[in-house]
Computed example of a mutant assay.
Amino acid sequence: MSHFEVIASDPHCGARRGVLTTAHGPVQTPAFMPVGTAGTVKGLTPDQIEATGAGIVLANTYHLMLRPGAEVVERVGGLHRFMAWDRPILTDSGGYQVFSLSALTRIDDEGVEFASHVDGAKVHLNAEIATNIQNRLGADVIMCFDECTPFPAEPERLEKAVARTIAWARRCRQAHRRDGQLLFGIVQGGIDLALRSHCAEEIVRIGFDGYAIGGLSVGEGHEHMVRTVEHTAALLPADRPRYLMGVGMPADIVAAVRAGVDMFDCVLPTRNGRNAFAFTRQGPLRLRNSVHIDSTEPIEDGCDCYACRNFTRGAIRHFFNCSEMLGPILLTVHNLRFYQRLMAEIRLQIEQGGFDCWAATALARDDSVR
């Protein structure tokens, strides 16, 4: 049974407009998921997140496993209750930490041994453990355990990572026990298109509720990323959602939607917001710059977010320079609203059949989506 319906597509490219049905409601796609690593999107309440237009958020299995632990989340009623978020949630598997915390890991075919970044304690994670933890957390969408490689990576290492990703996907499928929880497989392979083809074929053969493209946005650059996404997305079933993991520059999102990708997540809007960097349709703003010291302008003309409706650039700059927590909160709100406005425009353009033309224009103008 497919939980995903394509309701419109652009006849000139791979872009499609869809709805992903989950246990906690529908997700309108293409969708961008704010990242709530430890069970919260940093600095924002669930009401504030909802006000940005977000329909689904992401949480991190590895971090929740370490603190507070799956058993604690279970005792308080599951991840939705823990986060006070009654809409869909996706949890990643911890596989990305194999890459991001590589200095703290030892990996073999059975799984990964981490030295906890919290206290240095040894933590073991494998396909079965990652799946069990996600079953217990209770997210609507969970991910297979995989191995993400750095860029560049030696061919032998890429091949081993792909073989492990496929083997672990089979084990995740067998270990998955929670009804109503969608399990997504992940395609790895770096920028090696032959490896991507092999991995996609094997992951699709196993059969999942959705499919993710992992291992990108790790230093390969926009052109390599787009080439790899275009190649890989075309290999994935048309009746299942396609998720590009961890890719979040607006230009990358537009190019990936053009290739047929439906779901995205990235820390960029929130992390950059905490560092006084604002996304706008006219290009980035760095709110610490002195040019904004007495500006009465909003962050972005035409933006309907709480920050733009109530605060000036000059005030927000002041909050950052005084280390007031309101500054990072306001830019996080604005950046997430910027991303949700972008996704809403993408969905509208696909519905109206003009996405390909709109995307070509947007990508030609660096300041419009970058």
Results as ranks from 00 to 15, higher is better:
residue 27 V to E: 00
residue 347 R to T: 04
residue 145 F to R: 01
residue 257 V to C: 00
residue 366 D to I: 07
residue 350 I to N: 04
residue 41 V to I: 15
residue 261 V to Q: 06
residue 230 E to I: 09
residue 28 Q to K: 13
residue 297 E to H: 14
residue 260 G to Q: 03
residue 50 E to K: 11
residue 73 V to E: 03
residue 32 F to R: 07
residue 310 N to P: 02
residue 282 Q to N: 14
residue 123 V to A: 11
residue 18 G to A: 11
residue 33 M to A: 07
residue 194 A to I: 09
residue 114 F to A: 13
residue 180 G to R: 00
residue 249 M to T: 11
residue 277 F to Q: 09
residue 211 Y to G: 08
residue 330 L to N: 03
residue 42 K to R: 15
residue 287 L to W: 07
residue 240 R to P: 02
residue 72 V to E: 11
residue 194 A to N: 14
residue 5 E to V: 04
residue 99 F to N: 02
residue 276 A to M: 08
residue 277 F to P: 01
residue 19 V to T: 11
residue 88 P to R: 05
residue 66 L to E: 08
residue 92 D to T: 13
residue 65 M to G: 01
residue 12 H to P: 01
residue 123 V to T: 03
residue 287 L to A: 11
residue 166 I to Q: 03
residue 289 N to T: 14
residue 10 D to T: 09
residue 70 A to F: 11
residue 352 Q to G: 06
residue 276 A to K: 09
residue 245 M to I: 11
residue 356 D to E: 15
residue 196 R to F: 04
residue 186 I to H: 04
residue 325 M to H: 15
residue 174 Q to K: 15
residue 67 R to W: 03
residue 65 M to C: 00
residue 126 N to E: 04
residue 69 G to I: 01
residue 11 P to Y: 08
residue 158 L to I: 13
residue 102 S to W: 07
residue 20 L to E: 02
residue 279 F to S: 09
residue 274 R to V: 10
residue 165 T to M: 10
residue 210 G to R: 08
residue 262 D to C: 04
residue 324 E to W: 04
residue 335 N to W: 09
residue 171 R to H: 08
residue 234 A to G: 05
residue 52 T to E: 10
residue 205 R to T: 08
residue 14 G to L: 09
residue 283 G to Y: 07
residue 9 S to G: 01
residue 287 L to F: 04
residue 199 C to T: 00
residue 29 T to P: 03
residue 231 H to N: 10
residue 17 R to V: 02
residue 172 C to L: 13
residue 134 Q to E: 06
residue 198 H to V: 06
residue 350 I to G: 04
residue 66 L to H: 14
residue 158 L to H: 10
residue 7 I to C: 10
residue 365 R to G: 11
residue 301 D to M: 05
residue 143 M to G: 09
residue 184 F to S: 00
residue 338 F to S: 01
residue 97 Q to R: 14
residue 87 R to G: 15
residue 11 P to N: 03
residue 226 V to Q: 06
residue 293 I to S: 13
residue 146 D to A: 10
residue 179 D to T: 14
residue 235 L to W: 06
residue 345 E to V: 04
residue 97 Q to T: 07
residue 211 Y to I: 08
residue 44 L to H: 03
residue 111 G to F: 11
residue 226 V to T: 12
residue 222 H to N: 10
residue 84 A to C: 12
residue 163 A to M: 01
residue 178 R to F: 02
residue 154 E to V: 11
residue 357 C to T: 15
residue 187 V to I: 12
residue 197 S to T: 14
residue 134 Q to K: 02
residue 81 R to Q: 05
residue 178 R to C: 13
residue 302 G to Q: 10
residue 35 V to K: 00
residue 346 I to W: 02
residue 140 D to G: 10
residue 94 G to V: 03
residue 329 I to D: 00
residue 213 I to C: 02
residue 70 A to C: 01
residue 51 A to M: 02
residue 211 Y to M: 08
residue 291 V to L: 13
residue 349 Q to E: 14
residue 243 Y to P: 00
residue 68 P to T: 02
residue 157 R to D: 12
residue 50 E to V: 07
residue 101 L to C: 09
residue 157 R to P: 00
residue 233 A to N: 08
residue 6 V to A: 01
residue 321 N to T: 14
residue 138 G to R: 00
residue 360 A to W: 02
residue 162 V to H: 12
residue 247 V to A: 08
residue 160 K to S: 07
residue 13 C to E: 06
residue 17 R to K: 12
residue 61 T to E: 06
residue 316 I to V: 14
residue 272 N to L: 12
residue 356 D to T: 15
residue 363 L to C: 09
